[in-house]
Amino acid sequence: MDAMDSSAGLPEKPLFIPVILGTPRKGRSSEHVANFVAAQVAARPEAGTELIDVRALSLPASDEGEAIKDPAFSATMMRADALILVVPEYNHGYPGMLKHALDSNLKEYIHKAVGIVGVSAGPWGGTRVIENLLPVMRELGLVTIFWDGNFPHAQKTFDKDTGALLEPAHVRRLEKFVNELVWMAKVLRYGRENVAIE
C-alpha cells in the first residue's frame, strides 16, 4: 500500500484539515470554539490545519453557487483532506453565510471527510443545527463521521476576554472526534487516490 506508511501508522503526506468558522457575527462565541478546535488539530503529528473565517471570504451576495468562487478559499478546499465546520445554532439552523460559502465549491469536497462542531447558547450544544447540516454535507459530496463536537452554553465555556477554555472535559471529547475524523480522512484519501469506480 503506497499511500500509507503502515509501520508508523502515519500517512506519507500529513493530512490537511482546515477549520471553518461558520458565522460572521460580532461578538461570536464560535470564534473561541474554532480557535480551540484548530489548536487541537494543530497539535496532532499527522495533521495540519488553517482557520478559515467566513467573515474574511470575499463572496458577493448578488449571486450563488460556483459562480461566486473565492479562488483562495476554493484552493484551500482542494488541498483539504477533511474539514471541520464550527457552526453556531441560529433558530435551530445554520448561518446563511456558511451555506453561501459552502455552496461555492463542489469538486473540491468530493469524497472528503467532514466533522461538525455545534455551538449554542442553549443546553444542547448545537445538536439541532448539526442534524440540519447533515443532508447538505451529503449533497456536497462530503462524508460525515459519527462523532460531533458540542459546545452548549458557549458564553460560559470560554473566558470572554482571553478565550481560555473553562470546561476541561472538552479536551478529551474533542480528541475522540478528531481521532475519528483523522481515520476517515486517511481512508478517504486512500480511496480518492487508489480506488476506482467501475
Binding site: 453557487g65 460556483e66 459562480a67 468530493i110 487516490e193
Partner: peptide, 14 residues
C-alpha cells in the same frame, strides 16, 4: 483516479 460520479446542479445552471 476516477472515484466518483455525481450530479452538479451549479454547473448545469452556468
Amino acid at each position: 483516479n476516477f472515484h466518483a460520479e455525481k450530479v452538479d446542479y451549479s454547473k448545469a445552471l452556468a
